[in-house]
Design a protein around this nucleic acid. Structure first.
Length: 500
DNA sequence: AATCAGGTTGGAAAC
DNA sequence: AGTTTCCAACCTGAT
């Protein structure tokens, strides 16, 4: 048992020191009560089987950086290995915990854990403080402002937050307290694990986006220094298939909470101030607002990450074809642009937003007619910036299940990529077996005559797969299916109305 | 209740 | 080369 009672800050998706009001509250409380501050992170020992290796690497790096930064405050990170619902009550006793702070999260898995812990905390007289710091706005007050209804268009959402003042992002990097200093016990037991404890590092691809708050701030400042670039930013004009990212890649840092969305917000305001600049929805600020939009929708909608039982989701009779899902996930559809994107995703953990559009449309309403939920599961594994509400929301958008309904707007796996990469350099990088194909056939290698396939050193059907479907034919059939699915949904709605 | 405008970023054909 | 129109007719939100 600890000699001194403790105050806990429970880190979850807020892996940072800056603009962490809940952590600041914990430090203050430790001072006032003369208790010991114990910043914790609860790590699932089975995490390797739950998320992809790139995401795991990003998480471990973020935890290591967090520990380093906490040590600058005289504190440290305590890693607890296990299930929070079982572990926390034990530590409440062992450490004599009287006070716990944490941030507001909306991922149902996190919320479930939190509710169970809250219940036990009440029995054990542990006082809990939660702070909104994962979004710019408090999504629940936005929902309240809309009379509890979910804003289903971006414009509607923007009109709701238009007059809300955003408080400044607090810097606590200078707050050093004596009560932060760990004093007792077997401290090594709580060290941040090394990545090699989970995976053989020789199997990993090179790390393009290292995790952690330090890296997040560096990346933020790098981009914000380019004022002209920030002010001219228009998302639709950025390229999904440039070799180096055409956008900021701040998303993984936002999703893990290495970067405060409020800090990003104010830095953007600062960069735009006094300058002519682009506006939402296409501006960089607009991108941050999309995140807020989906968070609000996710918080206000039952079963947001599912089709069945989700009141805003179109019910569509998708077909779960395992061989389609596998080919898509592995980048073996026979459509080089689609495959390049999926392989970049698997290797690097990040792909451009429009590249996500391409592959999401292809898997669902465009070509393969597989449920968006299947795609969302694979993105959850691979994306460094995986985020519960953004993932479900965007998948519904692209599959024309919610928010977006013009299902005849189908991305062509042949034409779309050509707009920004005529030569197919992106394909040549990520689908190297096609590297030597002439530009005329790089997006459609099946059209190359056998002699050219031979010269290029890759026969279609041998070194690279045949097309999984005929896009030209199937996307038109799928449009018909969408049309009848919509009709069914409409009839069901009308029926419900007439009953009530 | 009924109608209307508008919707982050498609593609192909016709001008 | 850049703009307009069709595809088929969706949805939400405002009036």
């Amino acid at each position: 048992m600890s000699k001194v009672p403790s105050v806990i800050h429970w880190f979850r998706l807020d892996l940072r020191i800056h603009d962490n009001l809940a952590l600041r509250n914990a430090i203050n409380e430790a001072e006032n009560r003369k208790h010991l501050l114990r910043p914790i992170y609860v790590l699932d020992p089975n995490i390797k089987s739950k998320i992809g290796v790139n995401r795991l690497r990003f998480l471990i790096q973020s935890l290591q950086d967090l520990d380093t930064n906490l040590r600058k405050l005289n504190s440290r990170l305590y890693i607890l290995k296990g299930n929070p619902v079982e572990l926390l009550p034990k530590f409440f006793d062992q450490w004599q915990v009287k006070f716990l702070t944490t941030q507001v999260d909306i991922d149902p898995e996190i919320v479930d854990q939190e509710e169970a812990v809250e219940k036990i905390a009440e029995e054990k007289d542990v006082f809990i403080i939660k702070r909104v710091q994962h979004t710019v706005y408090d999504v629940y007050s936005v929902l309240k402002k809309n009379n509890g209804a979910v804003p289903l268009t971006y414009q509607k959402f923007m009109s709701l937050v238009n007059d809300i003042q955003v408080k400044e992002a607090k810097d606590i990097s200078k707050v050093v307290s004596d009560y932060c200093k760990p004093t007792d016990e077997d401290l090594d037991a709580y060290d941040v694990p090394k990545l090699e404890e989970f995976v053989d590092e020789s199997t990993l691809t090179p790390c393009k986006y290292p995790g952690g708050e330090t890296e997040a701030i560096k990346r933020l400042n790098n981009y914000m220094a380019k004022k002209q670039w920030v002010c001219k930013f228009e998302k639709p004009n950025t390229s999904p298939n440039s070799i180096e990212p055409s956008t900021t890649v701040l998303s993984p840092y936002l999703s893990h909470g290495c970067l405060s969305p409020k800090l990003f917000y104010h830095k953007l305001k600062e960069a735009e101030s006094g300058m002519k600049h682009s506006d939402p929805p296409v501006s960089l600020m607009g991108q941050l607002m999309w995140r807020e939009f989906y968070y609000t929708a996710g918080a206000g909608t039952k079963n947001f990450d599912k089709m069945v039982g989700n009141p805003i989701c179109m019910q569509i009779p998708w077909v779960k074809k395992e061989e389609y899902i596998k080919a898509w996930a592995e980048g073996k559809t026979g459509y080089p642009f689609v495959d390049a994107i999926m392989r970049q995703l698997k290797q690097e953990g990040w792909i451009h937003h429009l590249a996500r559009h391409m592959v999401a449309c292809f898997l669902t309403r465009g070509d393969l007619w597989v449920s968006w939920e299947e795609g969302a599961k694979i993105f959850e594994d691979y994306l460094l910036d995986y985020d519960w509400s953004l993932n479900a929301g965007n998948w519904m958008w692209l599959s024309a299940s919610a928010f977006f309904y013009k299902y005849f707007r189908v991305y062509s796996p042949v034409a779309f990529g050509k707009k920004t990469d005529k030569e197919g350099l992106y394909i040549r990088k990520y689908v190297p077996e096609l590297k030597k194909y002439p530009t005329a056939f790089i997006y459609e290698p099946w059209k190359a005559p056998k002699s050219i396939q031979n010269t290029a050193g890759c026969i279609i059907g041998e070194g690279y797969p045949h097309r999984i479907v005929d896009h030209e034919k199937i996307h038109k059939e799928n449009m018909q299916k969408m049309s009848s699915a919509y009709r069914m949904n409409k009839e069901k709605k009308a029926m419900k109305r007439s009953i009530s």
